[in-house]
Computed example of a mutant assay.
Amino acid sequence: MTISIAFASGKGGVTKSTLARAVAVSYAKSNWKVLAGDLDIGQGTFVNWNRRRMSAEIEPVFDVLSLGTVTQLKKHLDSEQYDLAIADCAAFASKSTIEIANLCDLTVIPTSFSLDDLESTVNTANSLVRSGVPAQKLAIAFSGVSENESDYEAARGYLAKTPYTVIDGFIPRKPALSKAQDGGRSIIECPYAAPRQRAEHVIQGIINRIEELTSEE
């Protein structure tokens, strides 16, 4: 069986690809056979990052493909060629995200602490649920945020009123994490311990959640 995780959002620039890369690297480090499908063919963010990674000869390596349709993703899932498939969705602008969320075991929606982003994130999650995606298959993660514990607690309080799983911790907006990705590394491969450990905590939370869901099946 191929485990599958999608990363989706209601708008662009919310660190979807950042989280997707880190999860893919984490599993690849554990010798899982990983496929990362970049479904935003207009931007190709994941594919371009992988080119930088390959150019720098960074390990572990894993397959990164540009997938133009959900059918292509489903074909790879059905083949069971991979242990894990990551779907890096385009911004929530078409029915494809709904189809992918229904197809995958878990869909992660990143958000910041701002009310604008929180409202957009909850609206996105609600839209997926209205389209048939079970609420338990959705998780919200804080990423690309300021290091402010009171803002973090306030944002958690806001999301506590929803039925959605909230991944513990947050990934700060740090130049060191951005530079790591510029060089083809993921945020869990950042050379600086403090931001890397923040990132590792959130990524482990996503891994824990997908293990909970798939162990129930």
Score class of each variant (00 low, 15 high):
71 T>C: 05
142 F>T: 00
179 K>F: 12
58 I>D: 12
203 I>W: 06
46 F>W: 03
73 L>I: 13
35 L>P: 10
143 S>K: 02
158 Y>E: 00
2 T>V: 15
51 R>Q: 15
57 E>D: 12
126 N>E: 13
56 A>D: 10
17 S>C: 10
80 E>W: 14
148 N>S: 06
99 E>R: 06
42 G>K: 07
52 R>T: 14
190 C>P: 05
41 I>Y: 12
143 S>E: 05
78 D>T: 07
62 F>H: 14
194 A>Y: 08
14 V>Y: 07
44 G>L: 04
163 P>N: 04
1 M>V: 05
50 N>M: 09
139 A>L: 04
104 C>K: 03
188 I>G: 06
3 I>V: 13
114 S>G: 07
103 L>N: 06
4 S>C: 14
22 A>D: 04
202 V>I: 03
161 K>Q: 14
22 A>Y: 01
177 L>A: 12
196 R>P: 13
79 S>T: 03
122 V>K: 09
6 A>M: 09
2 T>F: 15
149 E>L: 04
63 D>Y: 10
165 T>S: 01
62 F>W: 13
149 E>K: 15
196 R>E: 12
108 V>G: 07
34 V>S: 09
129 V>N: 04
78 D>A: 08
59 E>C: 03
69 T>K: 14
57 E>Q: 11
27 Y>D: 06
204 Q>K: 12
213 L>W: 07
175 P>Y: 04
182 D>S: 11
27 Y>C: 10
99 E>M: 06
12 G>R: 02
123 N>H: 06
114 S>N: 10
74 K>M: 00
100 I>H: 05
76 H>E: 13
130 R>F: 00
153 E>A: 01
129 V>A: 02
135 A>W: 03
191 P>A: 12
213 L>G: 08
69 T>L: 04
215 S>H: 10
154 A>W: 09
122 V>L: 13
217 E>T: 11
56 A>V: 04
144 G>R: 02
30 S>A: 12
10 G>N: 03
51 R>W: 07
48 N>P: 08
4 S>T: 13
45 T>E: 08
207 I>G: 03
57 E>F: 04
85 A>S: 11
6 A>I: 09
159 L>D: 05
210 I>L: 02
139 A>Y: 06
179 K>V: 07
151 D>P: 00
14 V>N: 03
150 S>G: 05
212 E>T: 14
59 E>M: 08
150 S>Q: 01
115 L>R: 11
173 R>N: 12
7 F>R: 00
172 P>D: 14
201 H>T: 07
174 K>E: 14
196 R>A: 09
191 P>W: 15
34 V>G: 11
90 A>T: 00
199 A>E: 12
109 I>W: 06
28 A>G: 05
83 D>K: 14
18 T>C: 12
174 K>I: 13
126 N>L: 08
117 D>V: 04
164 Y>V: 08
12 G>A: 01
190 C>Q: 08
188 I>N: 02
29 K>F: 15
12 G>H: 02
169 G>T: 14
2 T>Y: 15
122 V>D: 02
34 V>E: 10
61 V>Q: 08
127 S>F: 11
138 L>S: 13
217 E>K: 12
185 R>F: 08
137 K>C: 09
122 V>A: 12
135 A>K: 13
68 G>S: 15
136 Q>C: 08
89 C>Q: 05
80 E>Q: 12
